[in-house]
Simulated scan of single mutants.
Amino acid sequence: MPGLRREELAQLAGVSVSYYARLEQGLGQNVSDAVLDSLARALRLDDTEHAHLVALARPNRSAPGGRARRTVRQLPAGLQRLMAMMGDVPVMAMSPTSDVLAWNPLARAVFGQQHWDGLPNMTRMIFLDPPTRALFVNWEVKARSVVSNLRMVAARFPSDGRVRALVGELLADSGEFAALWEDHSVANCDSFTNVLDHPQVGGLTLYQEVLRTEEPELMLVVFTVEPDSPSATALRLLGALAEEREDRRVAVS
């Protein structure tokens, strides 16, 4: 809470100033739920910020044994079938740090713009890839959202070298990322409205929803449009263009 002194916050949470100082220093591995709940109330945190506080206070509990997140090397067969059936909407399988593990042709047509070889990291592309930046009409809102989400991931996986490497790269290469990172905001971006200006089909508004799976390091990101809208027409056109490209690629191979 702005202007709240450490002594006042400790009093509101019902703990001593010295104990609160230890929590600030990350020395509160055995802090109780009651104390964390009291701190969250004193700071007027929302549910997402409360969860982030718990992850910061108990880093070794947010990832089992304090270990780094494991790599998903192959999508489960059921998930592959589901993605194959969702040909009319863009869909990606992603890691918590926004590594694209798989995407269907329509998602690649929307976000890949045919200039990537392989699978990208979307956070890196949003800050460091000019075509991706130009794609988002609401880039500033999108950028803040992904940085706030990455802060939550970094708290969940404090020992993960890949998370630290991604943050370090972006801090070094993007002043805008560095400024947003210093803001210390946290939020998940499970639901988000992407306003795009696609180079092939023009304006496109995609509603993003994240579907969690049984595998904690794997999620599906699905993008939908309003029925019978200009965005729906644009998406169908983009799907037809993607199908033509895929047919040409198969014919050549």
Results as ranks from 00 to 15, higher is better:
Val137Gln: 09
Glu217Ile: 02
Gly112Thr: 10
Ala93Glu: 08
Ser16Glu: 14
Arg162His: 01
Asp47Thr: 15
Pro2Asn: 10
Glu215Ile: 15
Leu171Val: 12
Ser174Pro: 07
Arg212Thr: 14
Gly203Arg: 11
Pro96Val: 04
Gly112Val: 04
Thr48Ile: 13
Leu12Trp: 05
Glu49Lys: 06
Glu8Lys: 02
Val221Cys: 15
Ser95His: 02
Ala179Gln: 10
Ser38Lys: 02
Ser62Phe: 00
Arg151Pro: 00
Asn149Phe: 15
Arg108Tyr: 11
Gln114Cys: 09
Arg124Lys: 09
Glu24Thr: 00
Val201Glu: 05
Val89Tyr: 01
Leu4Gln: 13
Arg70Cys: 00
Ala51Leu: 10
Val147Arg: 09
Leu196Gln: 05
Asp129Ile: 07
Gly203Val: 08
Leu43Gly: 07
Asn121Met: 06
Met152Trp: 11
Val31Asp: 08
Arg108Met: 10
Ser32Arg: 12
Pro64Glu: 03
Asn149Cys: 08
Ala172Asp: 10
Asp117Ser: 15
Ala84Thr: 12
Thr205Tyr: 04
Leu218His: 06
Gly118Trp: 13
His50Trp: 00
Ala21Ser: 14
Arg69Ala: 04
Val137Leu: 13
Arg44Cys: 02
Val153Asp: 01
Val100Pro: 02
Val153Gly: 05
Gln11Thr: 11
Ala187Lys: 08
Arg249Cys: 07
Gly14Ser: 15
Ala21Glu: 13
Ala10Gly: 03
His50Ser: 14
His52Glu: 03
Leu56Asp: 01
Trp139His: 06
Leu101Glu: 02
Asp33Met: 09
Ala179Lys: 07
Arg22Phe: 12
Gly3Tyr: 08
Thr205Glu: 15
Leu218Phe: 02
Leu235Gly: 04
Ser253Phe: 01
Arg41Trp: 05
Phe223Ser: 06
Ala109Cys: 05
Val210Leu: 12
Met92Asp: 05
Glu244Tyr: 05
Gly168Trp: 01
Ala68Met: 02
Asp129Tyr: 14
Phe157His: 00
Asp190Ser: 14
Leu43Ser: 03
Glu214Trp: 10
Pro105Phe: 03
Val221Asp: 10
Arg248Lys: 11
Gln11Asp: 09
Asp37Thr: 08
Ser148Pro: 02
Ala84Leu: 15
Gly118Asp: 10
Arg73Ser: 13
Val167Ala: 02
Leu27Val: 06
Leu211Ile: 14
Ala155Lys: 01
Arg212Ile: 11
Ala232Gln: 09
Glu24Asp: 04
Ala102Arg: 13
Pro64Lys: 00
Gly26His: 06
